[in-house]
Design a protein around this nucleic acid. Sequence first.
DNA 1: GATGAATGAGTATTCATTCAT
DNA 2: TATGAATGAATACTCATTCAT
Lengths: 212, 212, 212, 212
Amino acid sequence: MPRRLRLPPPSSTASPGEAHPTRAALIEAAAEAFVETGYGAMSVRDLAHRLHMTTGAIYGHFRGKANLLGEAVRLRLDRDLEGEDGPKYPETKLAEYLAHNFRDYRKRRALRALLVEAAAAARVDDDVRALLHDVVSERQAGWRKQYRDAWIAEDLDPEVDPTAVLVIVWAAELGLGVLEALDISLPKPTVLANTVQRLIGSLDRGPRRHRR
Amino acid sequence: MPRRLRLPPPSSTASPGEAHPTRAALIEAAAEAFVETGYGAMSVRDLAHRLHMTTGAIYGHFRGKANLLGEAVRLRLDRDLEGEDGPKYPETKLAEYLAHNFRDYRKRRALRALLVEAAAAARVDDDVRALLHDVVSERQAGWRKQYRDAWIAEDLDPEVDPTAVLVIVWAAELGLGVLEALDISLPKPTVLANTVQRLIGSLDRGPRRHRR
Amino acid sequence: MPRRLRLPPPSSTASPGEAHPTRAALIEAAAEAFVETGYGAMSVRDLAHRLHMTTGAIYGHFRGKANLLGEAVRLRLDRDLEGEDGPKYPETKLAEYLAHNFRDYRKRRALRALLVEAAAAARVDDDVRALLHDVVSERQAGWRKQYRDAWIAEDLDPEVDPTAVLVIVWAAELGLGVLEALDISLPKPTVLANTVQRLIGSLDRGPRRHRR
Amino acid sequence: MPRRLRLPPPSSTASPGEAHPTRAALIEAAAEAFVETGYGAMSVRDLAHRLHMTTGAIYGHFRGKANLLGEAVRLRLDRDLEGEDGPKYPETKLAEYLAHNFRDYRKRRALRALLVEAAAAARVDDDVRALLHDVVSERQAGWRKQYRDAWIAEDLDPEVDPTAVLVIVWAAELGLGVLEALDISLPKPTVLANTVQRLIGSLDRGPRRHRR
DNA sequence: GATGAATGAGTATTCATTCAT
DNA sequence: TATGAATGAATACTCATTCAT
């Protein structure tokens, strides 16, 4: 039986917002484990073993597996989508921003996988659904605002609903996750990025006159 | 002990290849049950009970639960996507065809749900993944050909990769399923349809002049 | 790992009413185990091991632990209280019948213990309570009738409510179970029996006149 | 993190022997909680939360859950049975005293419930049994003396064993607790009281003449 | 082909108690 | 004395699959 690692209490050196290191490590590990093994197939006990903890310790930090999933999704969403390393929204045109994003789509494979897991879990479990709805809705609300701002700043076609575009783009991202789960081969990042740029770029003026 | 409902022998109206009506009824019921209850949460025993059969009977027709899922997906894919009631591909422009399709997107909720279930199952189980990969790949191959044909027939922008567009459209559809699973509210069908029409419609000529 | 004993299917030689021998053996064993080990402390898995079965096999016969308890109580109630070996009700005076019964009270230790377990379980679990209420109520209804008949046949004091006497006698029996659980030493059977005979015997005429 | 309610220091009004008010409050709360929720189902942690304490604090006062149960039983026994508000023993005839007591039986529902919990716990746990045996035995010893005194003072039938009567009466009380746990409906207090008066009242002279 | 009892491994969650701080 | 995070073992129940009949 392996020695248990008795984790130190929150030290003052811990970064603010991640007050409890055990909790943070747990979320991190859960996010990874749910992607690797699947939410349904990952047992809490095995997760505990991975971290050299006991199940009881986990349940001391989280009310249940569902909350762990919720936090894992929140973490990955924030890390992989918000914490951008590339060009920021206000500084780039929407089409270029999105193109850039899709050029990096392979970086977000884990996020998409996690969201597929989350979706399947949510379909079956009311608690999970409620939890995840909130997490995802929050982010979407922020993006919706950004899209509306872009519409104004870039003088995009007022006849097109920014929210519909947002949903389509976001759904496309999520759908890539479904296709990846099915092992369907996807276009190369550059090809995808160019296509996105072309499609979204077409919104930058009113509807084309020359349509027969 | 309830009387078992013994299904009638193969009728002459059954299409060839679906010789056994029990098998067909099973697939039909499984497709419904997996959507309603979730693939993981639906037990083979309960599925058998729904059809007044026994578990053994199911295993007489299918090697396992995974094969049932595979067949269920195949069924719904053929019924909900191929067996179109609306305008056919070759007779309509691609943009209009897709717009029409998204105007009806709510009809395909069950299909999307089933594919979310399938994706999550595939992530975890190699057999399921292989099975579903084949089923979905087959359909995609057909669509790819249709897109390529449309590119030629409609003289669409040769700098845009038809397959990339196909993947984006298909992923968007699947992603709607993920969002639905999370209870995220979606745009109205007409708004979505118009947006798709606008986006895909923008491909109908060469690259816009003002692009360097 | 011990060989599993694959029990034969219901044979035609099985006594009617105990159609399934596995089920009957299970109830028997459960009744014993719940007394020995306590309802709460007896795990379904251990019970299964005792019988060289798996937990799954048990759950094939009973919806849950609570039902097993219900059946165990029913069994012991029928065996230890109804299936009398001593004098039958209609043939003996009530007082003598009860005196005889208490003379044998030690025979029913297991029944009382089971009912104490049942009571504690019922206090906490609604299903258990409903189940046991029905089982016990049924028996009590029979006894109530017998007491009423005795009142007429033996011309007992009409000012005394037969049901109240029944409840007191039945409660006394059950209370012995509580005292036994606490290891309280009880009077010798003959002493108890005589006291009961004296008390119940006093009901055989109208209220005594000579009371000051 | 919620503020802990730090209980006031021992006040001078506290009776000696209950020096620590935390301890007393704990016993009080435990008695209530074990009745409400059941001994087995009530977790130490939840009990601590109810009192705005921590589990550790409880274990500072009691060696374990079992001791808490023991003290709870002692408390309720003293409060609900000894601390009589009605007529006192020596001043009333035994039959009348008991009749009065049963007329109030509904007041003691919590006591009976606690004793049913205690009995079930005692059956399973040697420590609990030993603990409770002592608590209950002590009280019974007192009652035994009172019954013997009554036998002399009221010139009751010397052929009847006072202890046997005590046990029957006490068992009847406890048995009511078992029946209550099973949700069995009980006679009205007055009916029960009259019956008790009649039965015990019958002991007030030597054996009846017509007995051989 | 069908039956359904049995398997056996697995699941999330709980809890009394301990102990370093 | 109090704290509360951690322990570690336990619990009821489920399920895809098999196989003797």
